[in-house]
Each structure stands twice: as C-alpha cells, then as structure tokens.
Design a protein around this nucleic acid. Sequence first.
DNA 1: ACCCAGGCGGGCG
DNA 2: CGCCCGCATGGG
Length: 291
Amino acid sequence: MQYNSASGEFRAKDFSLLHTYSSGQTLNFLGEMTTGKLESLSFSTTSGIFKVIYARAKGRQEGIVKWSYAGMQASAAESTLMQMLGMHNDIKHVYKQIGKDKIMARAIRQFYGMRLTKSDPWLAASCFIASQYNSIKRIRQITIKLINKFGRKNGLSVFPSCKAIAKASEGSLRSCGLGFRAKYLKEFAEAYSEQGMDYLYALSYEKAKSELMQFNGIGDKVADCILLFGYGKTEAFPIDVWIKRSIEKLYFKGERQSTNAIHSFAAERFGLFAGYAQQYLYQYARQNNIK
DNA sequence: ACCCAGGCGGGCG
DNA sequence: CGCCCGCATGGG
C-alpha cells in the first residue's frame, strides 16, 4: 500500500487500540490487527486511508500512536483520525457516569481504554445496513469488496461515496455479498445522494431515529448503531441478541424483557452515555461467552 | 450436511 | 402488543 509522507504521532492516555478495534463497532478494516505490545491496523474512510501503529508503554494505560494517511488535507486527516479512534470523548468522565454497578465496573476493568469510534454517517449506515442477520467476519468482507469495487479515488481504495453506491446496480451490489440487503443499501443511498445525511446531526436522538427507521432494512437496532457510531449520539443503545440476553441475565434475573423495557432501563441507568455502556456490555458478553 | 450470524418486515392470533 | 417465519450468503 502506498502512503504519502504525511504522518504524525501523539500520546494516548486511557486508550486501547486492540479493544477499540476488536469490538465489532468498526467494520471497515483494510489490514490485519496484530496483538501484543505493538498493535497496528489500516482502515479506510470515505475521504482517505489510514495506517495506525500503537506502542503501549509497559504496565501503563498509555502509549504512543503513530499514524500516516493518504488522500486528505492534514487538518482534516487529524480530526478524522481522532474521531475514528474515539479520542474525542472524555473517557474518565464516561466511566464515572456509567460505572455505577458491579457488572459495568467489571467490564470497564476488563476492557479498559476501549473507545467508541465515530465515523461519518454514511459509512456507519452502510456498514450497519449490511450487518443485519450477518456475521462480523462477513460484514468486513462485504465492506472490503465495496471499497475495492466502488471506492477508487486517485489511485486509492477509499470507502465508496453515497453517490457511487446510488449509481451502482443492485446486481453489482449483490456480487459484493450483500444478498437481500443490496436493495436496502441502494434505496438508502439513492435517498441521500443529493441532500446528504448531515442534517440529522441537528435533530434530537428520537427524531433522527424515526427518520432513519422509515427505510426498509433499518429497524430499531441498526438505527441506534448509525446514531451511535455515525453521529456520535451517545445516548443511543443498540439492542442486539447479545445485549438482550445479557441485560436479561445480568440485570433482570433471567426474566425476558421487551426491547422497549430494555431501552427504558438503559436510559435510566446509564443516561447520556448509554451507548458506551452498551459497547462494554457487548464486548464483555462476547469475550466471556455470556448467553 | 447442517447450523448460525451485532435483524428486519410481514403476517398471524 | 407478542410470537413466528423467511431471508442471501459463506464460515465453522
């Protein structure tokens, strides 16, 4: 892969690249993740590509992030990177807000430094429209195929634009592995290819969610993922099977709860950072295989 | 061969 | 409301 010479580094505190990028929220990897003391990964956004190497200081929750990029101006690249790594949130404050019970405190301890990554709305929408009734491994394969097929830009493979997907045929989208979701993605792209998705930033969480849920293929869970990972609306609380099972088991003695009941519980318990609590619970349930 | 996957839409009682 | 079913596709 070709990178230009633009690069930089910064010191990251209370940060884990491994936990952040192995927790199912980022589906646009290009390169592999290495584990251990030195971690690295490559990913693309709609504007360019990044490579990140993280060297952790021994025995401390801090280290040095070295990064390089291509396809963007320096200032845009830097702010995009910070959001993609989740460095824009004050995580100590978040921990204080959500770490009120033993379960969440344990999850935070186990996955200390895991951040919520914020991409752009379109990228998040594409990835999570592709995610329904699918496995994380396959979603990643699909996004890589979309990048390679529709995301060529000045010799780089970036995540395809909304307009590029709107112009693509349903059949060509299916050939990327989207299956029955191809139609959903195309319809969504067509709806936003002119006006863009940025106007939803100004709407309340509830308003924006009901707008997104108008589309075929976007229900309660996918809408929450888009709002959380695409817009940074941290009150969103995506409820997938893992979250539903573990909330019922860990907070309701195994009693079954409706989706609305879980939303109410999460809003009351975790407030404006419910999305963070969700991410820690999701990772905790999966890594510890809590069913 | 068989099962399942960070759900959703539609139809039923 | 709650419940049940089918769904494209590929990895385990």
